[in-house]
Design a binder for these strands. Sequence first.
DNA 1: CAGAAGTGAATAAGTATTCATTTAGATATT
DNA 2: AATATCTAAATGAATACTTATTCACTTCTG
Lengths: 213, 213
Amino acid sequence: MKVADKHGRIIQAAIRVFARNGFFNSRIAEIAKEANVADGTIYLYFNNKYDILITIFEEEMGKIIARVKQEIAKYDDPRDKLHHFALLHLSLVEKDKELAELIQVELRQSSKFIKEYRNRKFAEYLHIIAQILKEGQKRGIFREDIRPGVFKRAFFGALDEMSRFWVLSTKKKYSVKTAARQISEYFLNGILEEPRKPEPKKKKTTRKKAKAS
Amino acid sequence: MKVADKHGRIIQAAIRVFARNGFFNSRIAEIAKEANVADGTIYLYFNNKYDILITIFEEEMGKIIARVKQEIAKYDDPRDKLHHFALLHLSLVEKDKELAELIQVELRQSSKFIKEYRNRKFAEYLHIIAQILKEGQKRGIFREDIRPGVFKRAFFGALDEMSRFWVLSTKKKYSVKTAARQISEYFLNGILEEPRKPEPKKKKTTRKKAKAS
DNA sequence: CAGAAGTGAATAAGTATTCATTTAGATATT
DNA sequence: AATATCTAAATGAATACTTATTCACTTCTG
């Protein structure tokens, strides 16, 4: 990346500034200052303030979706895919809290444009979850009566709310690993004591030593 | 309540206007017009624009929390409590979409004030879920290794994301009942085929309260 | 008729965007 | 090698709005 990559510098500055103040409370002047460019320079690279926000989503969400798809493809068992989806989602949030906050907070604005945009882009992300479910159903691993349309939103929502906790509060009470394991456990096995799952037959990446039984 | 309940009229108008445009894109003049009062009148009842938003949360969230607590108390079995929490949450969203959208979208603004406010008020709502879980654990119904802090966020998040789907899109593909049943099922029994709970699928309200062994 | 309630035009600030001007880098000319 | 010429990139002060809030005045109400 060149020293004078103005486009990139502006994007990165905008992520920080928008995350800090929210879109509406952010000043173009502040972004310009943070990017070390003049106010007017921003308009050489972006049509307007809104365009900066949209571009951030376009570029960054694209990266995230590609990354997640690639990672999930490494695993064969849908149960593993689901668990690793959770793990990666939470890891990405932890790694770039400012971007995560921006996506979580500003992408929810009420404007028609954002509404439609979010639908279009998030649909792709949610679709990954639905695909994992469907594959598992085809293989007889997941129950047939699970509705992909409900499941993908529930699973994503669970991760998203957990993420918000980390993004908004500075203190992190649970590790990414713990949270990801808990959440994928809820969805795979449920929380009931009674119908505890016997044993996963095949692969086990990491075994949990039942120490204090 | 008087016919000329200006406070209430302004609140209701603001809910509509804020939901329609988002907080920042809403004009005081528009709220005033919608409430059939003069612009200046609003400042007799509220300190500023922001105060209207906060008051909406204060009053409406208070009602919701009270309502949910009351409803949940009707059931003894934590499994039923959880299911009915889901059912009521989604019903309330469906009943007042504008308020739901406002809470979902605007309560997530980045401003420090909102952040803190949300934390304080939502903590109470999330706490209801955690309490249900803990009680179930004490009774040996739910597994001991479920972390209330993760669970309450995951469960709420699942419902919240499902709600957003309804709020943002006009078409409703799933009924409240279906969605609530699916989501509470995920969390109670999981989605796996194998360790299917050996219970009759058709369970109605008149289900026997067989205390789990 | 006195005080409360309500009004809405005027005010006072704030800020996204523009554009006349400057700067930097490349190429041509001597 | 030094200088002149040209163009794109960059600048930031000025513009051109927008809008929350105020307050002098009017209308109710008991």
